[in-house]
């Protein structure tokens, strides 16, 4: 089982996102005043400054905006993974998140900019939060 580093708390902006992850939901916010999509999570709207935001659950469907394949990471959490793909994924609801693309034989050839992906929640050996990652849709 993977053993990724966990988010650390107390951290008030991201706590609701990770609480949702425990329920295997990918959460994001919109502004109740101007409808702007707010992500990463924050208590204010990043467009108009409103303090009134609403949480939603994403469909988890998105597109790879860009990616890289990490061949060398000295962190023990990733040392045993072999080459793995990090990516920015654009979710259909209009937010972009850093993530990994998993479930491919060879990340160098099997991950492409523009490919469609779907979220899944990956249980971890050493932490309480399942981590949202993506695999080809």
């Amino acid at each position: 089982m993977p053993n990724r580093p966990m988010p650390e708390f107390p951290e008030l902006d991201t706590q609701p996102f990770w609480d949702a992850a425990k329920r295997r939901e990918l959460a994001y916010q919109t502004c109740s005043d101007c409808n702007e999509v707010v992500f990463y999570p924050r208590a204010h709207c990043t467009k108009c400054g409103s303090l009134d935001t609403t949480w939603h659950t994403s469909s988890g469907a998105g597109t790879v905006y860009t990616y890289s394949v990490v061949r060398q990471n000295r962190s023990p959490h990733f040392a045993d993974l072999g080459a793995y793909a990090v990516a920015y994924v654009d979710l259909d609801e209009g937010f972009r998140m850093l993530t990994n693309v998993v479930g491919v034989d060879n990340p160098t050839t099997d991950v492409q900019v523009g490919m469609r992906v779907q979220v899944e929640f990956e249980d971890q050996e050493g932490g309480e939060y399942p981590i949202p990652v993506f695999r080809p849709a």
Partner: peptide
């Protein structure tokens, strides 16, 4: 090639799990 720094901020909490 080190991992990103320790968590606990609005940014690192969204990034450290991914080994970027």
């Amino acid at each position: 090639t080190g991992g990103r720094g320790g968590g606990g901020s609005w940014q690192t909490n969204m990034e450290v799990p991914y080994g970027s």
